[in-house]
């Protein structure tokens, strides 16, 4: 009854149970955090606005992004993935989401930032609908935990316009 095998088995099972319980508790403790992030995105300049030979519109722009995401960090947070996307509707598509910039925030100290950048990924429409287009900028974040449940949310900023003519 009290052989080596039994004791090793009991110890291993107990250790695993405690570890799983601690992981679950760490993940659940994230629920007590109610974050209040803030963000602001400004289109500083339209660098290029053209129709590609294939017929799709492409825009290149300069962005000013400032955000304070410090309240997203808890002790179970490994990193926060943050990205800015343009969202708009066209006659063909009910929703178009184009990531323009993204970044990885490794710690709370880096969570309040200001960045001036051109769009990291190409802003290409499916078709030629972008002239004079009104679109929303959304700042999304994706919280990656050390263990447990991942969470995500966004701030929507509206009232952005693309120019009426190519340039």
């Amino acid at each position: 009854m009290h052989s080596f095998g039994y004791r090793a088995n009991a110890l291993l099972t107990f250790a695993m149970t405690i570890l799983a319980l601690m992981c679950a508790m760490a993940s659940l403790s994230d629920n007590f955090n109610s974050p209040t992030p803030s963000a602001h995105v400004k289109v500083v300049n339209i660098n290029r606005f053209q129709k590609q030979p294939k017929g799709n519109d492409e825009v290149s722009m300069q962005l000013n992004i400032s955000a304070d995401l410090q309240s997203l960090f808890t002790w179970n947070t490994k990193q926060v993935f943050v990205y800015v996307a343009a969202e708009y509707e066209t006659p063909k598509n009910s929703l178009n989401q184009i990531s323009l910039w993204d970044g990885i925030i490794p710690s709370k100290e880096h969570a309040k930032f200001w960045i001036h950048t051109s769009n990291k990924y190409r802003f290409i429409d499916q078709g030629s609908n972008l002239r004079g287009k009104e679109f929303n900028m959304t700042l999304h974040w994706h919280v990656m935990p050390k263990t447990g449940k991942m969470s995500a949310d966004k701030i929507v900023m509206s009232g952005y316009h693309l120019p009426d003519e190519y340039r």
Partner: peptide
């Protein structure tokens, strides 16, 4: 990770 989405109006 998904970076771009285009969702059709008619068919979804």
């Amino acid at each position: 990770r998904v970076i771009k989405v285009h969702e059709r109006q008619d068919t979804g």
